Simulated scan of single mutants.
Amino acid sequence: MSDSPALPAFDPRRTALIPIDVQQGFDYPPWGPRNNPAMEVHGQRLLAAWRARGLPLIHVRHDSVIEGSSLHPTHPGNAFRAGFDPLPGEALVSKSVNAAFIGTDLDLRLRRLGVDSVALFGISTDMCVSTTARVAANLGYRTIVVADACACFDLHDEHGRTIVADDIARAHLATLRAEFAEVVDTDAMIAALHRAT
């Protein structure tokens, strides 16, 4: 059973699920040790729940403009992880910066769908998920981050000391919860979806 806060009522028809950068490139250097090995399982549960109900779904892929990046379109790492490819007819937004709204038509797509809420998950918690959540909130969307369907990586501080991924995730999710988003886990998100539909 979920220990996440229950999600207040929401309208699933006006809530887009947005998987962010669930790509193979994060298995290549320079990405380091990752937290949350269950991220893919939870993300696939969310996708299945949204697809079963025909709800708004927009995939986001990072197409790096940096030659040699593991997320560059010419690199095999640009491909989606197993189980996360868009199905025929599902929308795909390509971005080259952290926020999925910058330099893309994501905002226009959402508004044309009549969406006023977004549920975000993917890689990485502290970078593209967090940045997209902050921009979404600033644009006026009700923003939900599904924490256990996100993952991030160990980083080094200015002294070369390792900050482990779990600590990074906890800090970023706390910041998002304080100011920008509702932070829940997959069980809570799907339970709210069942209640609403």
Rank of each mutant, 00 (worst) to 15 (best):
H159V: 02
S2R: 12
S64R: 03
P86L: 13
L17K: 03
F153N: 03
R14P: 05
A38Q: 15
E40A: 15
F80M: 13
S64Q: 07
A147H: 04
V164D: 14
P8A: 15
S96C: 10
H62G: 01
P5G: 09
G114W: 13
F10D: 02
N36R: 11
A79G: 12
R134Q: 14
F153M: 10
P8F: 11
H59K: 04
H159A: 15
N98V: 00
A79H: 10
P88T: 11
D185P: 11
N35I: 06
L120T: 05
A192I: 01
G89F: 06
S130G: 04
S64L: 06
P76N: 05
S4P: 10
L120R: 03
L110N: 07
L55F: 09
L7Y: 04
S2M: 10
D21A: 09
P8Q: 12
E40F: 11
F180N: 13
H59L: 01
G114Q: 12
A169M: 08
G43H: 08
A169I: 01
V97I: 15
P8R: 13
T132Q: 06
V164T: 09
T186F: 06
A82H: 12
D126I: 02
L176P: 00
E67N: 08
H72A: 15
A151E: 03
K95F: 05
F84C: 09
A91E: 13
E182K: 03
P76E: 02
L108T: 13
A6D: 13
R170K: 10
D85E: 15
A16G: 11
L108S: 10
D21F: 07
T175M: 14
R81W: 02
A188M: 05
F26A: 05
P37S: 08
Q44W: 00
E40V: 03
T131W: 02
S130N: 12
I58W: 02
V118G: 06
R195G: 07
G54T: 07
R53K: 14
Q44V: 03
A151S: 10
D3N: 12
D148I: 02
F80D: 09
A147Y: 05
L155E: 14
V97E: 13
V97Q: 12
R81Q: 13
V93L: 06
R51G: 13
S124W: 01
R134K: 14
R109D: 01
V41A: 15
L155G: 06
I190N: 02
V183E: 02
F10M: 06
S124C: 08
C128G: 00
E90H: 07
I168K: 09
V118F: 06
R34Y: 00
S4E: 07
N78Q: 02
A136G: 15
D166N: 12
D63H: 11
G77D: 08
H159R: 14
M189F: 05
G32P: 00
L87W: 09
M189K: 03
S124K: 00
G83A: 08
R45T: 06
R134T: 12
A171T: 12
R51I: 12
R51T: 11
M1P: 04
A188I: 04
C128P: 00
A16W: 08
A192Y: 01
G68M: 06
E182N: 01
